[in-house]
Design a binder for these strands. Structure first.
Lengths: 199, 199
DNA sequence: TCTTGTTGTCAACGGCCGTTGACAAACTCG
DNA sequence: CGAGTTTGTCAACGGCCGTTGACAACAAGA
């Protein structure tokens, strides 16, 4: 009998706060499911906001996604907070740390990487936020390719661990994993001149 | 005026052939887009078959996907067709070869890995068809983890190259890429006892 | 006060989706 | 031939989707 009161929350009539709430909810939702599986109504509910406002403020689902897909990987900071010989470990440690924080912005990427609507934005995010600065830092032969391969490895591990949830990587001692991955990456960082490593 | 003749193809009334056509089309379509973006009507059209038949023969979209998600990575064959010291290169070569054939069954996996409906089947496919046999072959300490990391790397590279389409990996000389990746994987294969490689 | 613009609410639209059930055509076997 | 089964066709269902436009509540300026 009582009317279902979805959210008669006395919104304080603050459009900026509303937009922020929508963005927060979008971050949360897109990190849990992929682009298609995430609905505007779901985001709106999470933000305690009417669906129509989402379209009104951000134009479309695609534009909303683009908004939260700004490059935010603090590569420059990671590069500068230690020496080249420990960069591998710093990268991996940061990645694993980030995986524990919610919402994990990397998960947003991984979940929607295969969506034809979302992938262009993701490609841009990776290029600008990760590969470009890293390859500049690396220098030497095939810098861009090496940076891309490092990125590949990190993405692969994250995919198997957080998206596919392979038991061996989920239930494994974190420190062992970090060491193993960091070693591989570090050797890619160091492979400055030699196209063909010692055989 | 003329009735649009979608497909009045005189089907030869062969249910097995029809099922096979649907499976072929499914392979093709699921390799191009992800689980949600691939529609049964699209598959049916490609197979020149009525949509209803897809549901009738395979029960549901999910079951159809499960059917084409049988493990088919010929890991055993790859393991046996050469020595341990060249396994890395054989794995990478096979992967790159496979990426050129259509439909690429690996792409099916990558595209839908993030779909909550599809990912359990994909996890199973990876576990059974790749990680399990490889880790058995590897032996030694942390065999399963090492096999999973190798899988991660291969998946990461494939994702960046074929799904995200990072320019550096798409436009790169294939042989350089293969060498670089194979070296990394080979060192993981070789890291038999030492948990902490030479430091 | 009245007016104007902002912010939130509501209901509906058209579209695509996976799935189902009724029916027609073709083949099989008696 | 006639009955029964398989195979294919067609139209519709209910549901969810992103998006839109009309309208109410409120705030601020005249």
């Amino acid at each position: 009998m009582a009317k279902k009161a979805p959210t008669p929350v006395k919104r304080s009539r603050d459009s900026e706060a509303t937009k922020a709430a929508i963005l927060d909810a979008a971050h949360f939702c897109f990190a849990r499911k992929n682009y298609e599986q995430t609905g505007l109504r779901e985001i709106a509910a999470k933000a305690k906001v009417d669906v129509a406002l989402v379209s009104r403020y951000f134009g479309s689902k695609q534009k909303l996604f683009a908004t939260i897909m700004k490059p935010d990987f603090p590569m420059l900071q990671i590069l500068n907070e230690g020496g080249r010989e420990t960069l591998g470990k710093r990268l991996v440690r940061f990645l694993f740390k980030r995986a524990e924080t919610k919402p994990d912005s990397l998960l947003q990427m991984l979940h929607s990487a295969a969506s034809s609507e979302a992938s262009p934005m993701i490609r841009n995010r990776i290029e600008v936020g990760f590969i470009a600065p890293l390859s500049l830092y690396l220098g030497g032969d095939h810098a861009t390719e090496r940076a891309s391969l490092i990125c590949s490895y990190l993405i692969g591990v994250s995919t198997l661990r957080q998206v596919i949830r392979c038991p061996a990587l989920v239930g494994c001692e974190t420190e062992y994993l970090i060491d193993a991955i960091a070693n591989v990456i570090q050797s890619e960082i160091n492979s400055d001149r030699d196209t063909i490593p010692p055989n």
